[in-house]
Amino acid sequence: MKKLLPIILLVLGLGGGVGAGLALRPDPVLPVVEDGMEVDGKAHADSQANEDKEEGPPQGREYVELVDQFIIPVVNDNAVASLILITLTLETDAGENERIFQAEPRIRGALLQAMFDHANIGGFDGAFTNSSKLDPLRKMFVEVAQKVYGEEISDVLIVQITRQDVS
């Protein structure tokens, strides 16, 4: 009986969940057909397309992932206290991929210098992923990238950021 009780409770819980899901499911919307064309289906498709546009990436934009991670040493008391690893992606105008890859060494160099400056002012100390510390870093990335490359770069996305403390 002790082994049977958990199985009975599991089956009852599963059945209750399925029943609640079926009972609370929204009613299906059937398309209205007029002159061989779906009226409601078309309206639904248009509204769905508008929702997708709002949630998806901006139109006319491309994303260029910078190939390698950035590695930034954080120095405290003349010794490396930790290493910061950052992966960045650039949001650019459509058709800029090839030109971005050609200019990548210059862009990487400028972004790396900005990261060193950020580390030197303590930007990677403590809770470095707090928005109060990451927002200025993001803005600085965009300014530096636009200064080096141009207004075609509209944003610099921090895809990954980690800190490895050195013991």
Rank of each mutant, 00 (worst) to 15 (best):
P58A: 14
A20T: 11
I7E: 02
D46S: 11
V18N: 07
Q48W: 10
Q102W: 04
A110L: 11
V166H: 01
E96C: 00
V156Q: 05
A103D: 13
P31E: 09
V67G: 12
N130I: 02
L85A: 02
F70T: 01
A23D: 07
M37E: 13
E65G: 14
T129I: 09
L83D: 00
Q146G: 06
Y63H: 14
L9P: 02
I86T: 04
I121N: 04
N76C: 03
P136G: 03
S82I: 01
K53L: 15
V166G: 02
Q69D: 15
H118N: 14
A81Q: 09
A94C: 04
H44W: 11
S131G: 05
P6H: 01
H44V: 06
L4N: 03
L83C: 00
P28H: 05
E62Y: 04
E55F: 09
K53R: 13
S167K: 11
A45T: 11
V148S: 05
S82Y: 00
E151G: 05
K139I: 06
F128K: 03
E34M: 08
L90F: 07
A79G: 01
F70H: 10
A79K: 10
I107Y: 00
T162P: 05
F101D: 05
F124G: 01
T92W: 08
R99Q: 13
R108Q: 04
A43Y: 04
V142M: 03
K133W: 09
I153E: 06
M1S: 15
A81E: 11
A114I: 05
P57G: 11
F128N: 02
E54I: 12
D155W: 07
G19Y: 14
G60F: 12
L10N: 03
I161G: 01
N97I: 11
E96M: 11
G15D: 09
M140E: 15
L14A: 15
A114C: 11
L9A: 10
N78M: 10
I86P: 04
L30K: 10
D135S: 07
A119W: 06
L157T: 06
R61K: 13
G95I: 11
E96R: 01
I161F: 04
T162Q: 12
P73Q: 10
L5E: 03
V18H: 08
P105G: 09
L83A: 04
G19S: 09
G60C: 07
G21Q: 08
Q146L: 05
A23M: 07
D135E: 14
D117M: 11
G60E: 09
K2G: 08
D46V: 11
L134C: 03
Q164L: 13
V166L: 13
G56F: 09
L24V: 05
